[in-house]
Design a protein around this nucleic acid. Sequence first.
RNA 1: AUCGCAGGCCGCCUUAUCGUUUCGAAUUAACUUCGGAAAGGAAAGUCCGGGCAAUACAGAGCAACGUACUUCUUAACAGGAAGGUACUGGCUGUAAAUGUCAGUAACAGAAAGUGCAACAGAAAAUAAACUACCCUGAUAAACUUAUGAUUGUCGGGGAAAAGGUGAAAAGGUGAGGUAAGAGCUCACCGCCCGUACGGUGACGUACAGGGGCAUGGUAAACCUUGCGUAUUGAAAGAUCAAAUAGGUUCUGCUCCCCGCCAGUUGCGGGGACCAAUUGGCUCGAUUGGAAACCCGUUUGUCGGGCAUAGCAGAAUGGGUAGAUCGAUAGACCCUGACGGUGACGUCCGGGCUAGAUAAAUGAUAAGGGUUCCGAACUGGUUUCGGAAAACAGAACCCGGCUUACAGGCCUGCAUUUUUU
RNA 2: GCCGAUGUAGCUCAGAGGUAGAGUACUUCCUUGGUAAGGAAGGGGUCACGGGUUCAAAUCCCGUCAUUGGCU
Length: 131
Amino acid sequence: MKKFEKIVKQTFKKSERLSGKKNIEELFKNGSYFYLYPLKVVVLPSLHSNTHQVLFSVPKKSFKRAVDRNLLKRRMREAYRLHKHLLLTEPNVLSIAYIYTSKEVVNYQTIAHQIKESLNRLNSYVEKSVE
RNA sequence: AUCGCAGGCCGCCUUAUCGUUUCGAAUUAACUUCGGAAAGGAAAGUCCGGGCAAUACAGAGCAACGUACUUCUUAACAGGAAGGUACUGGCUGUAAAUGUCAGUAACAGAAAGUGCAACAGAAAAUAAACUACCCUGAUAAACUUAUGAUUGUCGGGGAAAAGGUGAAAAGGUGAGGUAAGAGCUCACCGCCCGUACGGUGACGUACAGGGGCAUGGUAAACCUUGCGUAUUGAAAGAUCAAAUAGGUUCUGCUCCCCGCCAGUUGCGGGGACCAAUUGGCUCGAUUGGAAACCCGUUUGUCGGGCAUAGCAGAAUGGGUAGAUCGAUAGACCCUGACGGUGACGUCCGGGCUAGAUAAAUGAUAAGGGUUCCGAACUGGUUUCGGAAAACAGAACCCGGCUUACAGGCCUGCAUUUUUU
RNA sequence: GCCGAUGUAGCUCAGAGGUAGAGUACUUCCUUGGUAAGGAAGGGGUCACGGGUUCAAAUCCCGUCAUUGGCU
Protein backbone atom coordinates (compact mmCIF):
# COMPACT_ATOMS: atom_id res chain seq x y z
CA MET A 1 0.00 0.00 0.00
CA LYS A 2 2.84 2.38 0.87
CA LYS A 3 4.49 1.67 -2.44
CA PHE A 4 1.30 2.55 -4.20
CA GLU A 5 1.10 5.91 -2.44
CA LYS A 6 4.52 6.84 -3.72
CA ILE A 7 3.58 6.10 -7.28
CA VAL A 8 0.32 8.12 -7.22
CA LYS A 9 1.11 11.65 -6.12
CA GLN A 10 -1.36 13.63 -4.07
CA THR A 11 -1.78 16.27 -6.73
CA PHE A 12 -4.96 17.43 -8.37
CA LYS A 13 -4.08 19.09 -11.64
CA LYS A 14 -6.22 20.49 -14.40
CA SER A 15 -6.00 17.30 -16.45
CA GLU A 16 -7.68 15.36 -13.64
CA ARG A 17 -10.74 17.60 -13.67
CA LEU A 18 -13.66 16.98 -15.93
CA SER A 19 -14.31 19.94 -18.20
CA GLY A 20 -16.02 20.70 -21.47
CA LYS A 21 -19.71 20.97 -22.15
CA LYS A 22 -19.85 17.82 -24.29
CA ASN A 23 -18.07 15.57 -21.79
CA ILE A 24 -20.34 16.68 -18.98
CA GLU A 25 -23.50 16.29 -21.00
CA GLU A 26 -22.46 12.80 -22.02
CA LEU A 27 -21.72 11.84 -18.42
CA PHE A 28 -25.10 12.92 -17.12
CA LYS A 29 -26.99 11.50 -20.09
CA ASN A 30 -25.42 8.02 -20.19
CA GLY A 31 -23.72 7.60 -16.81
CA SER A 32 -24.86 5.26 -14.04
CA TYR A 33 -25.15 6.53 -10.49
CA PHE A 34 -25.44 5.56 -6.83
CA TYR A 35 -26.03 7.38 -3.54
CA LEU A 36 -23.78 7.61 -0.49
CA TYR A 37 -25.25 10.18 1.88
CA PRO A 38 -24.63 13.11 1.53
CA LEU A 39 -23.25 12.39 -1.94
CA LYS A 40 -24.59 11.31 -5.31
CA VAL A 41 -21.95 9.77 -7.59
CA VAL A 42 -22.29 9.61 -11.37
CA VAL A 43 -19.85 7.42 -13.35
CA LEU A 44 -19.14 6.73 -17.02
CA PRO A 45 -16.16 4.95 -18.60
CA SER A 46 -14.31 7.53 -20.65
CA LEU A 47 -12.55 7.18 -24.01
CA HIS A 48 -11.10 10.67 -24.42
CA SER A 49 -8.69 10.85 -21.49
CA ASN A 50 -5.66 9.06 -20.08
CA THR A 51 -6.54 9.63 -16.43
CA HIS A 52 -9.66 9.64 -14.31
CA GLN A 53 -11.52 12.93 -14.50
CA VAL A 54 -13.67 14.25 -11.67
CA LEU A 55 -16.02 17.16 -11.09
CA PHE A 56 -17.58 18.33 -7.84
CA SER A 57 -20.88 20.16 -7.67
CA VAL A 58 -23.03 21.72 -4.97
CA PRO A 59 -26.47 22.88 -6.09
CA LYS A 60 -27.31 26.54 -5.73
CA LYS A 61 -30.79 25.55 -4.68
CA SER A 62 -29.61 23.93 -1.43
CA PHE A 63 -27.04 26.56 -0.51
CA LYS A 64 -27.76 30.19 -1.28
CA ARG A 65 -24.42 31.52 -0.09
CA ALA A 66 -21.42 31.18 -2.34
CA VAL A 67 -19.27 30.75 0.77
CA ASP A 68 -21.05 27.53 1.75
CA ARG A 69 -20.83 26.09 -1.75
CA ASN A 70 -17.11 26.82 -1.97
CA LEU A 71 -16.51 25.28 1.44
CA LEU A 72 -18.21 22.00 0.53
CA LYS A 73 -16.54 21.78 -2.86
CA ARG A 74 -13.16 22.31 -1.22
CA ARG A 75 -13.82 19.63 1.37
CA MET A 76 -14.83 17.13 -1.32
CA ARG A 77 -11.88 18.02 -3.51
CA GLU A 78 -9.45 17.69 -0.60
CA ALA A 79 -10.86 14.33 0.40
CA TYR A 80 -10.56 13.04 -3.16
CA ARG A 81 -7.01 14.34 -3.47
CA LEU A 82 -5.82 12.59 -0.33
CA HIS A 83 -7.53 9.27 -1.02
CA LYS A 84 -7.50 8.89 -4.78
CA HIS A 85 -4.69 6.31 -4.55
CA LEU A 86 -7.42 3.84 -3.55
CA LEU A 87 -8.82 4.00 -7.07
CA LEU A 88 -7.26 1.57 -9.52
CA THR A 89 -5.97 2.98 -12.79
CA GLU A 90 -6.38 -0.05 -15.10
CA PRO A 91 -7.92 -1.16 -17.38
CA ASN A 92 -10.64 1.51 -17.66
CA VAL A 93 -10.62 5.29 -17.21
CA LEU A 94 -13.64 6.94 -15.65
CA SER A 95 -15.49 10.25 -15.72
CA ILE A 96 -16.88 10.89 -12.26
CA ALA A 97 -19.23 13.55 -10.88
CA TYR A 98 -19.77 14.09 -7.16
CA ILE A 99 -22.98 15.96 -6.38
CA TYR A 100 -23.69 17.14 -2.84
CA THR A 101 -27.31 16.29 -2.06
CA SER A 102 -27.73 17.17 1.61
CA LYS A 103 -29.19 20.51 2.63
CA GLU A 104 -26.89 20.83 5.66
CA VAL A 105 -23.18 21.47 5.88
CA VAL A 106 -21.46 18.17 6.83
CA ASN A 107 -18.04 18.13 8.47
CA TYR A 108 -14.87 17.00 6.74
CA GLN A 109 -14.51 13.62 8.48
CA THR A 110 -17.87 12.39 7.23
CA ILE A 111 -17.22 13.52 3.69
CA ALA A 112 -13.77 11.91 3.63
CA HIS A 113 -15.18 8.61 4.88
CA GLN A 114 -17.87 8.55 2.20
CA ILE A 115 -15.41 9.50 -0.52
CA LYS A 116 -13.26 6.51 0.50
CA GLU A 117 -16.30 4.26 0.33
CA SER A 118 -17.22 5.57 -3.08
CA LEU A 119 -13.73 4.97 -4.42
CA ASN A 120 -13.91 1.33 -3.36
CA ARG A 121 -17.18 0.98 -5.19
CA LEU A 122 -15.83 2.68 -8.28
CA ASN A 123 -13.13 0.03 -8.61
CA SER A 124 -15.79 -2.35 -9.94
CA TYR A 125 -16.41 0.06 -12.80
CA VAL A 126 -12.71 0.23 -13.51
CA GLU A 127 -12.43 -3.53 -13.80
CA LYS A 128 -15.51 -3.89 -15.99
CA SER A 129 -14.72 -4.22 -19.69
CA VAL A 130 -15.98 -1.63 -22.11
CA GLU A 131 -18.46 -2.84 -24.69
C1' A B 1 -14.36 54.52 35.49
C1' U B 2 -19.50 53.82 33.67
C1' C B 3 -23.26 53.63 30.06
C1' G B 4 -25.26 55.89 25.39
C1' C B 5 -25.23 58.56 20.51
C1' A B 6 -22.58 60.14 16.00
C1' G B 7 -18.30 59.73 12.79
C1' G B 8 -13.69 57.28 11.28
C1' C B 9 -10.26 52.92 11.31
C1' C B 10 -8.93 47.52 11.88
C1' G B 11 -11.35 42.80 10.39
C1' C B 12 -6.15 37.43 14.61
C1' C B 13 -0.74 36.29 13.76
C1' U B 14 3.63 32.82 12.92
C1' U B 15 5.82 28.15 11.40
C1' A B 16 5.78 23.20 9.12
C1' U B 17 3.80 19.31 5.70
C1' C B 18 0.64 18.06 1.47
C1' G B 19 -1.88 20.74 -2.49
C1' U B 20 -4.52 24.85 -6.30
C1' U B 21 -4.20 29.18 -10.06
C1' U B 22 -0.96 32.41 -12.40
C1' C B 23 3.65 35.33 -13.76
C1' G B 24 9.08 35.23 -14.55
C1' A B 25 13.66 32.42 -15.30
C1' A B 26 16.29 27.85 -16.50
C1' U B 27 16.43 22.99 -18.84
C1' U B 28 13.64 20.37 -21.90
C1' A B 29 9.32 16.10 -25.03
C1' A B 30 6.91 17.52 -20.46
C1' C B 31 2.29 20.62 -15.57
C1' U B 32 10.35 19.25 -14.30
C1' U B 33 12.92 22.68 -10.97
C1' C B 34 13.69 27.52 -8.65
C1' G B 35 11.69 32.31 -7.34
C1' G B 36 7.44 36.00 -6.98
C1' A B 37 2.03 37.04 -6.48
C1' A B 38 -3.08 35.31 -5.08
C1' A B 39 -10.45 37.95 -2.04
C1' G B 40 -13.52 42.25 0.70
C1' G B 41 -15.09 46.34 3.68
C1' A B 42 -18.78 45.18 2.18
C1' A B 43 -16.05 41.09 -3.15
C1' A B 44 -23.14 40.94 -1.41
C1' G B 45 -27.90 43.40 -3.13
C1' U B 46 -27.96 44.89 -8.48
C1' C B 47 -30.55 50.46 -6.50
C1' C B 48 -28.14 54.81 -9.35
C1' G B 49 -23.95 56.89 -12.51
C1' G B 50 -19.82 56.28 -16.04
C1' G B 51 -16.05 53.75 -19.12
C1' C B 52 -16.07 49.88 -22.98
C1' A B 53 -18.69 47.09 -27.14
C1' A B 54 -22.44 46.10 -30.95
C1' U B 55 -26.55 48.17 -33.48
C1' A B 56 -29.04 52.82 -34.84
C1' C B 57 -28.36 58.06 -35.80
C1' A B 58 -29.11 65.17 -40.83
C1' G B 59 -32.75 67.29 -37.86
C1' A B 60 -37.53 68.18 -35.35
C1' G B 61 -41.92 66.79 -32.69
C1' C B 62 -44.81 63.31 -29.81
C1' A B 63 -44.97 59.34 -26.49
C1' A B 64 -42.52 56.70 -22.55
C1' C B 65 -39.22 56.75 -18.41
C1' G B 66 -36.44 59.38 -14.80
C1' U B 67 -35.64 63.67 -11.87
C1' A B 68 -37.07 68.23 -8.67
C1' C B 69 -34.86 74.36 -2.70
C1' U B 70 -29.89 76.96 -4.31
C1' U B 71 -24.79 77.18 -5.56
C1' C B 72 -20.70 74.20 -6.17
C1' U B 73 -18.01 69.44 -6.80
C1' U B 74 -17.19 65.50 -10.54
C1' A B 75 -15.93 61.60 -16.26
C1' A B 76 -20.97 61.19 -14.41
C1' C B 77 -24.73 60.55 -10.65
C1' A B 78 -30.79 60.04 -7.37
C1' G B 79 -23.62 60.49 -4.54
C1' G B 80 -20.83 64.38 -1.82
C1' A B 81 -19.81 69.64 0.13
C1' A B 82 -21.42 74.44 1.61
C1' G B 83 -25.70 77.35 2.16
C1' G B 84 -31.25 78.58 2.33
C1' U B 85 -36.24 77.35 4.13
C1' A B 86 -39.64 74.45 7.19
C1' C B 87 -40.30 71.22 11.30
C1' U B 88 -38.58 68.65 15.94
C1' G B 89 -35.54 68.58 20.38
C1' G B 90 -31.81 70.72 23.95
C1' C B 91 -29.65 75.33 26.12
C1' U B 92 -30.10 80.73 27.21
C1' G B 93 -34.26 83.55 28.22
C1' U B 94 -39.37 83.48 29.11
C1' A B 95 -45.96 85.77 28.52
C1' A B 96 -44.44 84.71 23.65
C1' A B 97 -40.48 85.66 20.57
C1' U B 98 -35.31 86.41 19.50
C1' G B 99 -30.49 83.95 19.83
C1' U B 100 -27.56 79.46 19.73
C1' C B 101 -26.48 74.05 19.13
C1' A B 102 -28.03 69.31 17.21
C1' G B 103 -31.20 66.38 14.20
C1' U B 104 -34.90 65.47 10.21
C1' A B 105 -37.01 66.68 5.16
C1' A B 106 -39.10 62.88 -2.51
C1' C B 107 -38.17 70.65 -0.09
C1' A B 108 -40.99 72.73 -7.99
C1' G B 109 -46.37 73.98 -8.96
C1' A B 110 -52.98 73.15 -5.37
C1' A B 111 -54.83 81.96 -7.15
C1' A B 112 -53.84 75.99 -15.49
C1' G B 113 -57.36 72.20 -15.29
C1' U B 114 -59.80 67.27 -13.84
C1' G B 115 -60.62 64.12 -9.73
C1' C B 116 -60.92 62.27 -4.43
C1' A B 117 -62.49 62.81 1.05
C1' A B 118 -65.56 56.40 4.21
C1' C B 119 -68.06 57.12 9.08
C1' A B 120 -69.84 61.20 11.84
C1' G B 121 -71.94 65.96 11.07
C1' A B 122 -76.87 71.00 9.51
C1' A B 123 -72.98 71.62 6.06
C1' A B 124 -66.84 68.61 3.12
C1' A B 125 -65.62 73.25 -1.01
C1' U B 126 -69.17 78.19 -6.96
C1' A B 127 -70.05 77.35 0.95
C1' A B 128 -74.20 75.85 3.95
C1' A B 129 -79.21 77.34 8.26
C1' C B 130 -80.11 71.51 12.39
C1' U B 131 -80.37 73.63 17.44
C1' A B 132 -79.91 78.29 19.47
C1' C B 133 -80.06 84.02 17.98
C1' C B 134 -82.64 88.52 15.54
C1' C B 135 -86.59 90.94 12.49
C1' U B 136 -91.38 90.10 10.48
C1' G B 137 -96.69 88.03 8.69
C1' A B 138 -100.82 84.84 10.12
C1' U B 139 -103.13 82.27 14.09
C1' A B 140 -104.22 80.30 19.22
C1' A B 141 -103.84 80.82 24.53
C1' A B 142 -103.86 83.26 29.07
C1' C B 143 -102.67 88.56 31.05
C1' U B 144 -104.08 93.80 30.50
C1' U B 145 -109.50 98.87 30.39
C1' A B 146 -106.94 99.22 25.78
C1' U B 147 -102.60 100.09 22.56
C1' G B 148 -99.59 96.22 23.72
C1' A B 149 -96.06 92.68 25.19
C1' U B 150 -95.18 87.16 26.45
C1' U B 151 -95.57 82.00 25.02
C1' G B 152 -96.92 78.08 21.42
C1' U B 153 -97.88 76.62 16.10
C1' C B 154 -97.34 77.62 10.73
C1' G B 155 -94.80 80.77 7.07
C1' G B 156 -91.21 84.80 5.01
C1' G B 157 -86.43 86.85 5.71
C1' G B 158 -81.46 88.23 8.29
C1' A B 159 -76.90 86.41 10.22
C1' A B 160 -71.98 83.09 10.06
C1' A B 161 -70.86 85.14 16.17
C1' A B 162 -72.45 80.20 20.09
C1' G B 163 -73.28 74.46 20.03
C1' G B 164 -71.82 69.57 18.80
C1' U B 165 -69.22 66.10 14.51
C1' G B 166 -64.74 65.28 12.16
C1' A B 167 -58.21 64.31 10.13
C1' A B 168 -60.00 68.92 8.18
C1' A B 169 -65.59 73.71 9.28
C1' A B 170 -63.25 79.27 5.35
C1' G B 171 -57.62 84.46 9.36
C1' G B 172 -56.60 85.20 15.38
C1' U B 173 -57.15 88.60 19.88
C1' G B 174 -59.49 93.03 21.65
C1' A B 175 -62.63 97.31 20.89
C1' G B 176 -66.39 99.83 18.19
C1' G B 177 -70.81 98.80 15.66
C1' U B 178 -75.80 96.33 14.99
C1' A B 179 -82.54 94.17 15.31
C1' A B 180 -79.02 90.15 15.90
C1' G B 181 -74.45 89.65 13.80
C1' A B 182 -70.39 89.67 10.49
C1' G B 183 -63.08 92.52 8.25
C1' C B 184 -68.82 95.75 8.55
C1' U B 185 -64.92 99.44 10.79
C1' C B 186 -60.38 100.17 13.71
C1' A B 187 -55.64 98.58 16.61
C1' C B 188 -51.99 94.67 17.04
C1' C B 189 -50.47 89.94 14.97
C1' G B 190 -50.73 86.77 10.58
C1' C B 191 -51.48 86.54 5.03
C1' C B 192 -51.12 88.23 -0.26
C1' C B 193 -49.16 91.90 -3.70
C1' G B 194 -45.63 95.79 -4.75
C1' U B 195 -41.12 98.61 -4.25
C1' A B 196 -36.13 99.34 -2.40
C1' C B 197 -31.62 97.29 -0.54
C1' G B 198 -28.22 92.93 0.29
C1' G B 199 -26.78 88.10 -1.85
C1' U B 200 -23.89 84.35 -7.89
C1' G B 201 -28.51 82.08 -6.11
C1' A B 202 -32.20 79.63 -2.90
C1' C B 203 -33.61 83.62 0.02
C1' G B 204 -33.27 87.56 3.67
C1' U B 205 -34.20 92.66 5.60
C1' A B 206 -37.01 97.13 5.41
C1' C B 207 -41.51 100.07 4.26
C1' A B 208 -46.43 106.05 8.27
C1' G B 209 -46.48 101.40 0.37
C1' G B 210 -51.12 98.80 -1.56
C1' G B 211 -55.10 94.89 -0.56
C1' G B 212 -59.97 93.55 4.03
C1' C B 213 -58.39 88.43 3.29
C1' A B 214 -59.37 86.61 -2.26
C1' U B 215 -55.58 81.54 -1.63
C1' G B 216 -58.51 74.57 3.06
C1' G B 217 -56.01 69.32 2.12
C1' U B 218 -54.18 65.70 -1.39
C1' A B 219 -49.42 65.96 -7.06
C1' A B 220 -45.47 58.67 -3.09
C1' A B 221 -54.10 60.81 -7.63
C1' C B 222 -54.16 62.27 -12.89
C1' C B 223 -51.62 66.40 -14.29
C1' U B 224 -48.54 71.20 -15.36
C1' U B 225 -43.58 73.34 -15.62
C1' G B 226 -38.15 73.04 -15.88
C1' C B 227 -34.08 69.65 -16.71
C1' G B 228 -32.28 64.85 -18.45
C1' U B 229 -32.45 60.02 -21.19
C1' A B 230 -31.08 56.14 -28.38
C1' U B 231 -31.36 50.66 -27.36
C1' U B 232 -29.05 46.31 -25.60
C1' G B 233 -25.26 44.34 -22.08
C1' A B 234 -18.90 41.11 -21.56
C1' A B 235 -23.55 35.02 -21.97
C1' A B 236 -21.67 42.58 -25.34
C1' G B 237 -18.37 41.90 -29.15
C1' A B 238 -13.66 40.62 -32.29
C1' U B 239 -10.28 36.86 -34.49
C1' C B 240 -8.89 31.63 -35.77
C1' A B 241 -11.59 27.33 -36.77
C1' A B 242 -11.91 20.28 -36.45
C1' A B 243 -15.57 16.53 -37.79
C1' U B 244 -20.41 16.04 -40.14
C1' A B 245 -24.32 18.14 -43.17
C1' G B 246 -25.95 22.23 -46.33
C1' G B 247 -24.68 26.88 -49.72
C1' U B 248 -21.72 28.96 -53.94
C1' U B 249 -18.15 28.46 -57.94
C1' C B 250 -15.11 25.59 -61.28
C1' U B 251 -13.78 20.96 -63.83
C1' G B 252 -15.06 16.06 -65.76
C1' C B 253 -18.72 12.33 -67.04
C1' U B 254 -24.06 10.91 -67.81
C1' C B 255 -29.10 12.68 -69.10
C1' C B 256 -32.46 16.61 -71.32
C1' C B 257 -33.39 20.89 -74.76
C1' C B 258 -31.85 24.20 -78.80
C1' G B 259 -28.70 25.59 -82.84
C1' C B 260 -24.66 24.67 -86.38
C1' C B 261 -21.48 21.52 -89.26
C1' A B 262 -21.88 16.96 -91.11
C1' G B 263 -18.85 11.69 -91.50
C1' U B 264 -20.08 7.34 -87.20
C1' U B 265 -19.95 9.12 -80.96
C1' G B 266 -18.04 16.45 -83.60
C1' C B 267 -18.60 21.78 -82.02
C1' G B 268 -21.29 25.83 -79.49
C1' G B 269 -25.11 27.62 -76.05
C1' G B 270 -28.79 26.93 -71.92
C1' G B 271 -28.00 33.98 -68.34
C1' A B 272 -29.81 38.58 -64.85
C1' C B 273 -33.53 41.44 -61.98
C1' C B 274 -38.26 42.70 -60.09
C1' A B 275 -37.26 48.32 -54.33
C1' A B 276 -34.14 48.86 -49.76
C1' U B 277 -32.76 51.25 -44.93
C1' U B 278 -34.53 54.24 -40.86
C1' G B 279 -34.34 54.03 -32.40
C1' G B 280 -41.10 53.01 -29.51
C1' C B 281 -44.18 56.15 -33.28
C1' U B 282 -44.72 60.13 -36.97
C1' C B 283 -42.99 63.87 -40.20
C1' G B 284 -38.92 63.90 -42.90
C1' A B 285 -34.27 62.08 -45.07
C1' U B 286 -30.93 58.81 -48.10
C1' U B 287 -30.07 55.43 -52.19
C1' G B 288 -32.32 52.76 -56.57
C1' G B 289 -34.28 49.30 -60.57
C1' A B 290 -37.59 49.21 -64.60
C1' A B 291 -32.45 45.70 -68.53
C1' A B 292 -31.01 41.80 -72.02
C1' C B 293 -32.38 37.41 -75.19
C1' C B 294 -35.98 34.59 -78.33
C1' C B 295 -40.72 34.45 -81.03
C1' G B 296 -44.91 37.13 -82.91
C1' U B 297 -46.39 41.85 -84.52
C1' U B 298 -50.94 46.38 -85.99
C1' U B 299 -43.73 49.01 -84.93
C1' G B 300 -46.43 51.34 -79.47
C1' U B 301 -44.12 53.35 -73.05
C1' C B 302 -47.32 46.56 -77.18
C1' G B 303 -48.34 41.07 -76.28
C1' G B 304 -46.30 36.23 -75.25
C1' G B 305 -42.21 32.78 -73.85
C1' C B 306 -37.70 31.20 -71.01
C1' A B 307 -36.41 23.95 -68.79
C1' U B 308 -31.75 24.19 -64.97
C1' A B 309 -31.37 16.98 -63.35
C1' G B 310 -27.69 13.17 -61.24
C1' C B 311 -22.61 11.43 -59.80
C1' A B 312 -17.36 12.38 -58.68
C1' G B 313 -13.32 15.73 -57.58
C1' A B 314 -11.32 20.53 -56.33
C1' A B 315 -11.79 25.44 -54.55
C1' U B 316 -14.43 28.90 -51.59
C1' G B 317 -17.88 31.58 -48.13
C1' G B 318 -20.81 31.47 -43.74
C1' G B 319 -20.35 28.93 -39.30
C1' U B 320 -21.03 24.70 -34.69
C1' A B 321 -17.73 22.17 -30.90
C1' G B 322 -13.25 24.24 -29.30
C1' A B 323 -9.36 28.01 -28.83
C1' U B 324 -7.43 33.13 -28.45
C1' C B 325 -8.51 38.23 -27.52
C1' G B 326 -11.97 41.36 -24.83
C1' A B 327 -9.52 40.65 -19.33
C1' U B 328 -6.68 43.33 -15.57
C1' A B 329 -1.62 49.85 -15.29
C1' G B 330 -6.17 52.16 -13.66
C1' A B 331 -11.12 58.80 -13.47
C1' C B 332 -5.09 53.24 -9.56
C1' C B 333 -2.55 53.25 -4.58
C1' C B 334 0.94 55.71 -0.87
C1' U B 335 3.71 60.06 1.14
C1' G B 336 4.28 65.28 1.03
C1' A B 337 3.43 70.46 -0.66
C1' C B 338 0.08 74.22 -2.46
C1' G B 339 -5.11 76.30 -3.53
C1' G B 340 -10.21 76.07 -1.58
C1' U B 341 -14.91 77.31 4.38
C1' G B 342 -15.56 72.27 2.30
C1' A B 343 -16.58 68.24 -1.19
C1' C B 344 -12.43 68.50 -4.25
C1' G B 345 -8.44 70.13 -7.48
C1' U B 346 -3.11 70.89 -9.06
C1' C B 347 1.97 69.44 -8.55
C1' C B 348 6.77 66.73 -6.76
C1' G B 349 8.42 61.84 -5.38
C1' G B 350 7.60 56.57 -4.77
C1' G B 351 4.82 51.77 -5.81
C1' C B 352 2.71 47.60 -9.15
C1' U B 353 -1.45 45.42 -6.20
C1' A B 354 -5.98 38.38 -7.94
C1' G B 355 -7.22 37.26 -12.99
C1' A B 356 -9.98 31.85 -12.71
C1' U B 357 -13.42 29.69 -16.96
C1' A B 358 -17.58 23.00 -14.57
C1' A B 359 -14.42 28.13 -12.44
C1' A B 360 -7.82 28.69 -8.18
C1' U B 361 -6.89 31.27 -3.31
C1' G B 362 -7.40 25.09 0.40
C1' A B 363 -6.54 20.93 4.21
C1' U B 364 -3.97 19.15 8.51
C1' A B 365 -0.75 19.94 12.74
C1' A B 366 1.95 22.94 16.36
C1' G B 367 2.81 27.57 18.87
C1' G B 368 1.41 32.57 20.22
C1' G B 369 -2.07 36.83 20.99
C1' U B 370 -7.48 38.48 22.21
C1' U B 371 -12.19 37.57 24.87
C1' C B 372 -15.18 34.45 28.14
C1' C B 373 -15.77 30.40 31.89
C1' G B 374 -13.65 27.28 35.92
C1' A B 375 -9.70 26.07 39.49
C1' A B 376 -5.18 27.28 42.30
C1' C B 377 -1.96 31.05 44.33
C1' U B 378 2.22 35.10 46.80
C1' G B 379 -4.81 37.61 45.27
C1' G B 380 -3.72 45.22 40.96
C1' U B 381 -1.66 39.91 38.80
C1' U B 382 0.33 35.05 37.63
C1' U B 383 -0.20 29.73 36.45
C1' C B 384 -3.15 25.56 34.67
C1' G B 385 -7.50 23.56 32.00
C1' G B 386 -11.65 24.33 28.62
C1' A B 387 -14.42 27.16 25.00
C1' A B 388 -15.21 31.00 21.28
C1' A B 389 -13.76 34.14 17.02
C1' A B 390 -18.58 37.68 12.90
C1' C B 391 -20.79 39.10 8.06
C1' A B 392 -19.31 36.92 4.07
C1' G B 393 -16.03 34.53 -1.63
C1' A B 394 -13.68 38.17 -7.06
C1' A B 395 -15.92 36.74 -12.60
C1' C B 396 -15.05 43.18 -17.79
C1' C B 397 -13.55 47.61 -14.91
C1' C B 398 -14.41 52.00 -12.00
C1' G B 399 -17.46 56.13 -8.76
C1' G B 400 -21.41 55.98 -5.25
C1' C B 401 -25.79 54.18 -2.44
C1' U B 402 -28.17 50.31 0.41
C1' U B 403 -28.08 46.06 3.44
C1' A B 404 -25.16 42.27 6.85
C1' C B 405 -21.24 42.15 10.61
C1' A B 406 -18.05 38.63 16.49
C1' G B 407 -14.58 41.60 18.65
C1' G B 408 -11.22 45.73 19.13
C1' C B 409 -9.08 50.92 18.59
C1' C B 410 -9.48 56.42 17.93
C1' U B 411 -12.20 61.27 17.97
C1' G B 412 -16.38 64.43 19.43
C1' C B 413 -20.89 65.19 22.36
C1' A B 414 -23.96 63.85 26.55
C1' U B 415 -25.30 60.71 31.44
C1' U B 416 -23.79 58.91 36.37
C1' U B 417 -19.76 58.22 40.17
C1' U B 418 -14.84 59.27 42.45
C1' U B 419 -10.33 62.36 43.13
C1' U B 420 -7.74 67.13 42.57
C1' G C 1 -23.81 36.83 -14.66
C1' C C 2 -28.45 39.47 -16.43
C1' C C 3 -33.97 40.41 -16.54
C1' G C 4 -38.94 39.57 -14.51
C1' A C 5 -43.17 37.81 -11.28
C1' U C 6 -45.43 36.56 -6.60
C1' G C 7 -46.22 36.77 -1.04
C1' U C 8 -53.90 37.99 2.01
C1' A C 9 -57.77 32.47 6.86
C1' G C 10 -55.18 25.41 7.65
C1' C C 11 -55.54 25.06 1.68
C1' U C 12 -56.96 27.53 -3.32
C1' C C 13 -57.68 32.47 -4.54
C1' A C 14 -60.69 37.69 -4.90
C1' G C 15 -60.05 42.67 -3.30
C1' A C 16 -55.98 48.06 -6.55
C1' G C 17 -57.02 54.31 -1.03
C1' G C 18 -62.36 54.29 3.38
C1' U C 19 -62.40 49.84 9.03
C1' A C 20 -60.83 42.31 4.66
C1' G C 21 -64.09 38.57 1.65
C1' A C 22 -65.46 33.74 -1.41
C1' G C 23 -64.94 28.41 -1.99
C1' U C 24 -63.09 24.43 0.80
C1' A C 25 -61.49 22.73 5.58
C1' C C 26 -62.62 23.27 11.18
C1' U C 27 -66.26 23.75 15.71
C1' U C 28 -71.41 23.57 17.61
C1' C C 29 -76.54 22.61 16.72
C1' C C 30 -80.71 20.60 13.56
C1' U C 31 -81.99 16.39 10.45
C1' U C 32 -81.15 10.31 10.85
C1' G C 33 -81.92 4.24 14.45
C1' G C 34 -76.52 5.72 13.08
C1' U C 35 -73.18 7.88 9.19
C1' A C 36 -72.76 10.71 4.70
C1' A C 37 -75.27 14.46 2.06
C1' G C 38 -78.38 18.74 3.32
C1' G C 39 -79.79 23.05 6.62
C1' A C 40 -78.52 26.83 10.59
C1' A C 41 -74.96 29.36 13.55
C1' G C 42 -69.85 30.31 14.82
C1' G C 43 -64.49 30.70 15.31
C1' G C 44 -60.00 31.54 12.71
C1' G C 45 -55.84 37.15 9.74
C1' U C 46 -49.16 41.17 12.60
C1' C C 47 -52.68 41.25 4.55
C1' A C 48 -44.18 38.30 4.29
C1' C C 49 -41.03 42.03 7.24
C1' G C 50 -39.19 47.34 8.30
C1' G C 51 -39.75 52.48 7.19
C1' G C 52 -42.33 56.64 4.67
C1' U C 53 -46.58 59.62 1.99
C1' U C 54 -51.81 60.47 3.46
C1' C C 55 -56.95 62.35 7.98
C1' A C 56 -56.82 57.10 6.57
C1' A C 57 -52.38 51.96 3.33
C1' A C 58 -53.52 44.88 1.97
C1' U C 59 -53.75 48.86 -1.89
C1' C C 60 -49.18 54.37 -3.32
C1' C C 61 -43.45 55.00 -2.65
C1' C C 62 -38.55 53.11 -0.71
C1' G C 63 -35.67 49.18 1.46
C1' U C 64 -35.13 43.96 3.29
C1' C C 65 -36.50 38.59 3.31
C1' A C 66 -38.56 34.30 1.05
C1' U C 67 -40.56 31.63 -3.13
C1' U C 68 -40.58 31.22 -8.28
C1' G C 69 -40.04 31.93 -13.92
C1' G C 70 -36.99 33.30 -18.17
C1' C C 71 -32.22 34.38 -20.91
C1' U C 72 -27.52 30.48 -22.11
